[in-house]
Design a protein around this nucleic acid. Structure first.
Length: 185
DNA sequence: CCTGCGATATTCT
DNA sequence: GAATATCGCAGGC
């Protein structure tokens, strides 16, 4: 069963922490794949210079301003899709980037989608990689994770604070000092 | 093990 | 024209 709306309608940093250990599922072209979320990053609204939303709406980031629980999927470096979970209320422009999953179901399908990749551990350990492995592309931008039949998140494991580490976010230059990247250790 | 670089769309200066 | 929430490959050690 999908996680309910209220879970997502909170501060991105809280949602990012609580998403660790939960299960992301896609059902694309008849292939069901799922994985345990093991790395996330929070991006806030106007005050966060690293966030796509901090200068306001654009054609690319419009879905980031939907209410919590929607998908924000964008193209990075003109090459790879990145999957985010929108958080907070409509108009906030907050989201959580899912940076890595541990494959659970449909591992064969993931390996095929990733082409030359051989090992299960490398198949979805990065934001661009997991989008390919799970069949996530622009057609899922704006999807409602609470109701959509192609992509959703289910409650799985609760990760205790002691098993969680917070570090600076990866690959950014502005507002880079915030420790808003969360991993299971 | 490590570092450097090319691919390439959208946004920003 | 430059920068960007990435990745895989090439080359040197």
């Amino acid at each position: 069963m999908s996680i309910r709306r209220e879970f997502y309608q909170r501060d991105a940093r809280i949602v990012a922490r609580e998403l660790l250990g939960q299960r992301l599922i896609t059902l694309i072209d008849g292939e069901r794949t799922s994985g345990r979320i093991i790395e996330t990053e929070a991006y806030l609204g106007t005050g966060d210079a690293a966030s796509h939303s901090h200068r306001g709406k654009s054609p690319r980031n419009a879905t980031m301003f939907l209410t919590g629980g929607h998908a924000y999927v964008y193209l990075i470096y003109g090459m790879y899709w990145c999957f985010n979970v929108v958080t907070g209320d409509e108009g906030d422009g907050e989201a959580v980037l899912i940076r890595a999953i541990e494959p659970l179901e449909g591992i064969d399908a993931m390996l095929i989608r990733r082409g030359s990749i051989r090992s299960e551990v490398d198949v979805a350990n990065g934001p661009g990689k997991l989008a390919i492995a799970m069949g996530i592309g622009h057609e899922l931008n704006g999807a409602d994770l609470v109701t959509d039949s192609r992509i959703w998140i289910e409650r799985d494991e609760r990760i205790a604070d002691e098993r969680m580490a917070a570090t600076t976010r990866i690959g950014i230059t502005r507002d880079a000092h915030h420790e808003w990247r969360y991993v299971i250790r």
